[in-house]
Design a protein around this nucleic acid. Structure first.
Lengths: 141, 141
DNA sequence: TTAAAGTTGCGTCGTTTACTAAGGTATTGT
DNA sequence: ACAATACCTTAGTAAACGACGCAACTTTAA
């Protein structure tokens, strides 16, 4: 099971927003994309989803940008992942009518619940990246 | 994150094998496929993977078939899923060099460990399907 | 009013998944 | 020994999904 890039990107950009949450300033897509090495065009779609889920607030027009909707301590991996993917973290199939299909499905539902529990224990605060260097440049070997 | 059908099928067929483990008799692909509503050709590939992982034993030739390698109490969801997928249940991407990529990756590694823990607590015994009816027919509405 | 910035929807290309098919190989009953 | 039986392996494929790119639209500060 591969964790979707979209979810990973969402965590990264939210961590980035968390790092400047105290300032109350908005951050623009271009800058966020540069900091996390993401495609701006794709990042926009992710941020839109996060806004619809109530995790970020956007301001349009000139000097617009994005802002975390709540304190980083109050946003968990569980919320982030649930915002991106639909109803469940681990989604099992509708079932094929096999004799043990129902039991198997139920077992994975339990696993999903356990996973939600553990994801609910990891907050954005733990994801805040190490202190940024003063020069804005990144080093690539 | 969708649970791969392959993994779900593996659980189903292992549950089926668990239900007759006590008898010591082998079960044939055609019969297993019928009981779990799976494609025999596809099921063979899954069973081969499970055999390579040491979860089932196969006997070739006439009167051949498959048998659970260990007691159902001793086989967990974690082992099954790890046998099908590669190194981890939740596999995060290589990382894109973003400022918070490393932290995010590490967080999901922790989630993966928690998930392994919870999957390790569910055994095949819990997946054994309800008692089979004597007539071999299935009912579809 | 104009330029900057978010919003939305569509299109596309590459990868993965789920499955089919066909030929090969090992056992066993006779 | 032989042939029937059942597992083994690999190649191929069609559909679905993921990860974007692009373009037209809307909102808002200056």
């Amino acid at each position: 099971m591969r964790l979707p890039l979209k979810t990973e990107y969402a965590c990264q950009v939210l961590a980035q927003l968390a790092s400047t949450f105290a300032s109350g300033q908005v951050r623009q897509v271009e800058e966020l994309a540069a900091a996390e090495h993401l495609s701006p065009n794709y990042l926009v779609q992710i941020l839109t989803t996060l806004r619809q889920a109530g995790l970020v607030i956007s301001r349009r027009g000139k000097n617009g940008g994005y802002l975390l909707a709540r304190h980083p301590d109050d946003i968990t991996l569980a919320e982030i992942a649930m915002a991106l993917e639909g109803g469940a973290l681990i989604e099992s199939s509708p079932g094929n009518g096999g004799k043990s299909a129902e039991r198997v499905r139920h077992a994975w539902v339990r696993v999903n619940e356990a996973m939600l529990q553990s994801c609910g224990g990891i907050t954005l605060t733990e994801l805040i990246p190490p202190l940024q260097t003063q020069d804005g440049a990144d080093w690539v070997i």
